[in-house]
Amino acid sequence: MSTQAVAGTATRRPRPGGASTTKKKQWRAAYLFVIPFFLVFVTMLIVPLFYSGYLSFFATRLVGGTSFAGVENYVKTFTDPLFLAGLGRTALFLVIQVPIMLGLALFFALALDSGRVRGAKVLRLLFFVPYAIPGVVATLMWGYLYGQDFGPIDQVLGFLGLGQPNLLSDSNVLGSMMNIVTWEFVGYNMIIMYSALRSIPAELFEAAEIDGASQFRVAWSIKIPAIRPAILLTVIFSIIGSFQLFNEPSLLRNIAPNAINSSYTPNFYAYNLAFVNQDVNYAAAVAFILGIVIMIVSYVVQLTTQRRERLG
């Protein structure tokens, strides 16, 4: 504690001598702590990123080898119907699945926070469990549940005389995927919102309750506005996650190969371009554009909510 005080004064009144060597030592220690992360960050993220950027300006052909292509790959991306269709699909996924998932997460968080649910601790854990299951395992599991003829969902529906819909058909598979992702991430988002709810000072809604406000009123007018930043965080995470969909299409393609094409989502498309079509250059361009699209959408969402906050 005393060092903190010393450091505090040192910042205010920098002077040569003892205090500055302490400070130097601290700096050195700080950098030493940061270096391991920074090394990994640079070699595993920055360098590959620049290399992919570099690659995206070339074209490699099986016959003729590599040549400089300029922005050709980028121009191609914007007119590539497969890429645009994949992007559209993820956008659709975003506008339908994200509100449902976050709505559910918010509802569960509020219910647990209201203190009126028995066994709230156990429930909280149960909601969270799907997130602890690796995405790959979850998708394989759901793939089995969705199976026609042998999957439990279809068997139950068939037993009830409701027919046996093919949940992995061309028109249903996107919905089936939304269901998997929702199931997987409701708990995760709920925990973020729940922990934000716990940090609201209790006096606020105690006062409201004394004034006779109903639980819904308290939730709507006090709790939700109070955890707005947490909700915004989950929205941004969800947007990034939606555009980066990969596990689900990649694994479900094995059991529904014709419903899910090789360019189902932009991320899956980039993967197939690189490893099936062996077109690493074009894949790099697609990945970059996808990254830019994600940044733009996230930024727009953040900007609009901030403006609304200011207006409000």
């Binding site: 070699t43 993220l45 290399y51 080898g65 995405g135 969909l245 990969f246 993967y271 690189a274 690493v280």
Partner: peptide
């Protein structure tokens, strides 16, 4: 909803390939 793994994997794969190429001082072909 954070599924960044594949993208990172792609970047990683590309990165490893680079390193492999750099280390061996080799160009494709």
């Amino acid at each position: 909803m954070r599924k960044r793994a594949p993208r990172t994997a792609l970047a990683l794969g590309v990165g490893l390939l680079t390193t492999a190429l750099l280390l061996t001082g080799c160009t494709p072909g």
